[in-house]
């Protein structure tokens, strides 16, 4: 009998707590939109913040409130956008995106301007006269983008970042941290791209970097659909005109078009 009283005490306290909680959750429940729950389930749940909201919950709430477009979720991509659009009953046009680094340089291909021994981050190095490499437009190679990537889609190879197309979700986190603004989001099935951002004249560029666009114009001549133009000493490809024939890639002596 001795054991009965303590058991009853714990049981009663537990019961009071349980009943109290269930009553509280019933009477003080906040009505959650059914749509919001469904949308939340359709989102990948990475809480990466690429949509511009505090997390998947915040984005779902904004979607229900009609404040957000359904194609903002980068990790979820087209699948999530389609699912959200179906729940909300709207149509969506979206294409999968991928990060692209407009530089092929890095410490192997570019001449070093000075020896840098400070904090190993692109942001810090960039503050010191644009970083230790001679090309002031190019990749510094300390891997700020590599550190920013939540999905492990950026690898550092020979001192420069390489994007792994299979794991890149196109969330765009890396585009924000690059002090040189080299990374941009491009359509996942992009056919051609110019991997150089140097706007200096050809003679200077040639000296500084082995893989740089010198604006020779060979690609523009080779292009049959007239998609390539030269702007600011750089080849620029108009994706709406590009047929993906690959003639520019063959024509480029510097290996900059990929």
């Amino acid at each position: 009998m001795e054991i009965l009283i303590p058991v009853i005490i714990v049981a009663v306290i537990g019961l009071i707590a349980g009943v109290g909680l269930s009553l509280a959750s019933k009477f003080m429940a906040v009505p959650i939109d059914e749509k919001q729950e469904k949308i939340r389930a359709a989102l990948p749940g990475a809480n990466c913040g690429a949509c511009g909201y505090s997390g998947c919950d915040g984005y779902a709430a904004a979607l229900v409130a009609g404040e957000a477009a359904p194609d903002k979720c980068a990790p979820g991509g087209a699948d999530a956008a389609a699912a959200i659009a179906e729940i909300l009953g709207v149509e969506v046009k979206s294409e999968a995106k991928i990060a692209f680094i407009a530089c092929k340089g890095g410490c192997e291909n570019t001449i070093t301007k000075y020896a840098y021994s400070g904090i190993q981050s692109c942001g810090a190095a960039n503050g010191l006269s644009g970083g230790p490499l001679a090309c002031e437009y190019g990749c510094i190679g300390f891997g700020d983008c590599f550190k920013a990537c939540q999905f492990g889609a950026i690898k550092m190879e020979n001192g420069r970042p390489v994007i792994c197309p299979d794991t890149c979700t196109g969330c765009g986190k890396c585009t924000l941290v690059c002090p040189k603004s080299l990374i941009s989001l491009v359509p996942k099935d992009y056919k051609t791209a110019v991997a150089c951002s140097n706007k200096k004249k050809g003679a200077t560029v040639v000296k500084n970097c082995k893989v740089s666009c010198i604006a020779c114009g060979m690609c523009a001549k080779a292009c049959e659909s007239g998609a390539i133009k030269l702007e600011n000493n750089l080849a620029v490809i108009d994706r709406s005109l590009c047929t993906g024939c690959g003639k520019c890639r063959e024509a480029c002596k510097r290996g900059v078009i990929i």
Partner: peptide, 24 residues
């Protein structure tokens, strides 16, 4: 019974505080 009862009560209180905060 101190430990077990306190754990029980604290867990319930945290849940309750969460519900109340969410509502008000």
């Amino acid at each position: 019974l101190e430990t077990i009862v306190f754990i029980l009560v604290i867990a319930a209180i945290v849940q309750l505080i969460e519900i109340v905060l969410k509502r008000y």
